[in-house]
Amino acid sequence: MTPVQEAKRYIDNAKEILRDKARKEEGYYQDAKYVKLAGHAAYTGILVALDGLLGKKGKGRKDVDWYKQNLAKLDKRMLNSFVSAYDILHLSMAYDGIPDAEVAQTGLKRAESIIDWVEQRTVTA
């Protein structure tokens, strides 16, 4: 399985968690536990895709700043999309469990656009 295929699997899992377990009512998810799991899954999908494109870091663990620095060298617009996805998926959803379904959908759209961007770059490489 390629990194992009794996990343898409993470996004599918996040959507499934929200759809089947988070219980959406009137535009808000009722179970923060599943919002957190979905946010983490979607953000991890982004990182899996980016890892396939950007490769390995020299020493230590990768962190959000490492991804930002490397994306800034490649595409400023995608850097902005990544920062937005990080704020929504990792901070708002995975940590805070924000229940707003529109926010979650925006985060998932950002994740999909980043993964599609990686896929286009790896196809042409």
Rank of each mutant, 00 (worst) to 15 (best):
K68H: 01
L108T: 02
D20K: 13
D65H: 07
L37E: 14
P3R: 03
V35W: 12
K56H: 09
A7C: 05
L108N: 05
M78F: 01
A42R: 13
T44N: 13
W66Y: 15
Y43E: 13
E16L: 13
L91D: 00
D12N: 10
K76F: 12
I17G: 05
S113L: 11
D116T: 07
M78H: 05
L108P: 05
I46H: 08
M1Q: 01
G55V: 10
Y28C: 05
V35H: 11
L54A: 14
P3G: 01
G39Y: 11
P99G: 15
L50G: 11
G52P: 09
V103K: 14
Q105D: 14
D51C: 00
K109F: 05
D51S: 13
A125D: 14
L89C: 08
V123W: 07
P99E: 15
G58N: 14
A41M: 01
L71G: 09
K76L: 14
S92D: 15
Y95M: 03
I114A: 03
A41P: 03
R77V: 13
G58Q: 13
L53S: 02
K24N: 02
L53N: 04
T122I: 14
G52C: 11
T124S: 15
L89G: 04
K57Y: 09
L89F: 06
I115R: 07
Y67S: 05
W66K: 08
K59R: 12
L47K: 11
Y29S: 07
G45P: 12
L18S: 04
D65G: 06
Y67K: 06
K76I: 10
L37A: 11
V4I: 10
Q105I: 02
Q30F: 06
L91C: 00
K36T: 10
M78A: 05
Q30A: 09
K15S: 06
A41W: 00
Y43Q: 09
I115W: 08
E26N: 15
D87N: 07
K109M: 05
T106D: 09
Y34S: 04
R19S: 12
D31R: 15
Y86C: 02
N13M: 05
Y95P: 00
K62L: 10
S92Y: 12
I115V: 15
R110S: 01
V123P: 02
V103G: 01
D63A: 03
K62H: 12
G39M: 12
M78D: 04
R77T: 14
F82H: 02
K59T: 06
Y29H: 06
I46L: 06
A72L: 10
Y95E: 07
R110N: 07
Y43F: 15
H90D: 13
F82Q: 01
L79R: 07
I114D: 04
S81D: 10
A104G: 01
V35I: 15
D100R: 06
G45S: 11
L91F: 03
G27K: 12
A22V: 11
K57G: 09
A111M: 02
G52V: 08
L37T: 00
A85Y: 04
K76W: 08
E102N: 13
Y34C: 05
L50I: 07
D20Y: 02
